[in-house]
Amino acid sequence: MLDHIIHILPYELKTIVNQLSQHIKNSLEEIRIRENRPLEISHHGSFHYVTEKGKTVLDSRQAYHPTQEQCRKLLERITNYSLYAMEEELRRGYITIAGGHRIGIAGRTILEGGHVRGIRDIGGFNIRIAREVLGASKQLLPKLFGGPSDSLQSTLIISPPQQGKTTLLRDLARALSYGDYRKHAMKVAIVDERSEIAACVRGIPSFDVGPRTDVMDACPKAEGMMMLLRSMSPEVIIVDEIGRVEDAVAIREAAHCGVKVIATAHAYNIQEAFGRSEIRTLLQERAFGSVVELKRNEQGFMHRIISVDRMLEQNRQNHGFFSLTKKAGS
């Protein structure tokens, strides 16, 4: 998993990361490299500094301080010695490398007409390690099928940040595209605005998102959905983080075309999601067949599925806020 990252690190940092204990390596989440400042890693939700010998410490003074030369080499390798080919990425502030890992960068920005055109004098890197969890959607997938025609239903997945929405979404795309469930391989299209789901490198997905999957990379969601509807005739569109007015328009358009949408939204629970007007409208219009609430714990993903029909029915009966129906949990 760390191969791609070790590969791009300059020699000294490579040695240090290799010396980390296996336990830490397995759960490494971020490596933060700042020029002439302590080397930091985060794992298991906490952070540590790292010494030259690969020991984790809490005192920043004992930590290894990456040099300017190492940072330059790191930048050269991340960009494949071609900063000029990365202008779009620099404008967004991160570069995706092979393996789907994302490297955030910070430095002095270059402005043009008040907008950021790029970053130069890059002095900080945040290597975020991406983990592909094959089979993350295994338990959820069968429950997304249903409704009158007993087919895949449009689904809204809601969860707080860092709970594995993207991982789940990616695995759903893969499973639907391969036809893992019911042996029915579907045409899947992904709008990957932040290059997180498929982690495309030059248009080619780094993760396995399935053989029948098309990805519109780094594309605004609403526009991407419309483009895919016109160009790729998908059966399912997968999209991350919806919530704006344009997104709702595109989702309605997809529903009119009979295309299913699996989308995620940031919210702690369904009540909070219902509080956001665009999402509420979409739910009331029954653009989604079901809502999945997602939580992560030590055992893996926890989800419960709420049928939108029943939710709205109860909501009407209660003349106000609904109580939740527990349909499933695992």
Binding site: L75, E76, T79, Y81, L83, Y84, A85, E87, G118, R120
Partner: peptide
């Protein structure tokens, strides 16, 4: 070589 934007290159 390589380490600046296209215009500069």
């Amino acid at each position: 070589l390589g380490m600046s934007d296209a215009e500069d290159q």
